[in-house]
Design a protein around this nucleic acid. Structure first.
Lengths: 187, 187
DNA sequence: CAGCGAAACTTTCCACTGACAAGATGCGCC
DNA sequence: GGCGCATCTTGTCAGTGGAAAGTTTCGCTG
């Protein structure tokens, strides 16, 4: 970030990335509903209309953030391979917690443009990895829906704090435990 | 609602209820993030500062809505009895879809005051019904967490539209199908 | 290397929102 | 009958999203 001494107020360098980073920080601090486009501009060090050029409007920022999130999720899932579904499920929960800001925006369709091409592509890529992992277990695809629902629900309940009353250890082992309830047979 | 001809602009009659009803309608139309306190006031037919007296601020409205939602959920769950967990799970999903506005606000802690007494009481009541239903199946309580996660995740994925690609019939039968995967033994 | 068009960012402006303060009204209670 | 207080209104202010128009710099063409 040597932009303050060498660059003029125009041409930030990589404003798009700076705004997305600022959005991650802002969402982590105050939730997806509390973010302000002008605050993102301030964090990035540009005027309040700077981000508009790259994203169009506020929904554009969150759309880009969601697309980036689905790409990161697909990376995290494919890194786990397709061998054990339990570990894929644990990776899903770990992603939701480590990339909380992305995850929260990804599943808020009212906050972004769900027909955005980049978003749709990233979402389809992650969706394929999710369903293919458990489709081999059953035939009608319901097992895949159940597996996704289980891990998605646990991640959501954990993030919203609904499970804090239970004496759960870390989310990793808890996620593994409930995944093993659904898929007890590990070859 | 005969207030327009008999009542003066002051003393609405039941403004608290009118604002909550307006909030349900507004959340259903544009999501929990898009609602405006002034719009709720307009829908209820009062000035823009009318609701403040009853709810304090915007978070107060959503807190009251969340508390009402947990009460409705507890009613729906206890109406199903505690005999078959599968049917309790189906009732959970049905509630999420039929009372979508309530459900979406209930699990957005950043939108309301989570330490509100009425909200905490309603949430604890519903939480007790949720965990007790499946705790008899297992011993360490993990089965209860798994059951809640499964139905909560399915409801969320259904509401966000993430499952629309699959050729699922109605949510009721789909929810029953995945609940039976987790609890195959129905006495 | 000059200049020209487009991209990147700024400034200005408007309608709307949340929150607060102060005022107006009418219900209930003595 | 009048007084206190809950209820609702009006007025105001800072902050926000978005659009329009202006300014500066990049990069390409000649």
């Amino acid at each position: 970030m040597t932009r303050f001494d060498v660059m003029s107020p125009y041409h930030h360098g990589d404003l798009r990335r700076a705004v997305l980073d600022a959005a991650v920080a802002a969402v982590a601090e105050q939730g997806p509903a509390g973010i302000s486009l002008r605050d993102l501009a301030r964090r990035a060090g540009v005027s309040h209309a700077g981000p508009v050029h790259h994203f169009g409007d506020k929904a554009g920022v969150l759309t880009a953030l969601a697309a980036e999130g689905f790409d990161l999720l697909a990376d995290a899932l494919s890194a786990e391979g397709d061998r054990d579904f339990v570990e894929v499920g644990v990776a899903y929960v770990r992603f939701a917690i480590e990339h909380r800001a992305h995850f929260e925006v990804m599943f808020r369709p009212e906050l972004h443009r769900r027909d955005d091409p980049a978003l749709a592509a990233a979402r389809d890529r992650a969706g394929l990895l999710l369903t293919s992992g458990a489709s081999s277990v059953s035939d009608d695809g319901m097992a895949g829906v159940a597996a996704w629902s289980l891990m998605h629900g646990f991640a959501n309940l954990w993030l919203t704090g609904a499970l804090r009353t239970e004496h759960l250890e870390d989310p990793d082992t808890a996620a593994r435990a409930i995944a093993r309830i659904l898929f007890p047979a590990v070859p």
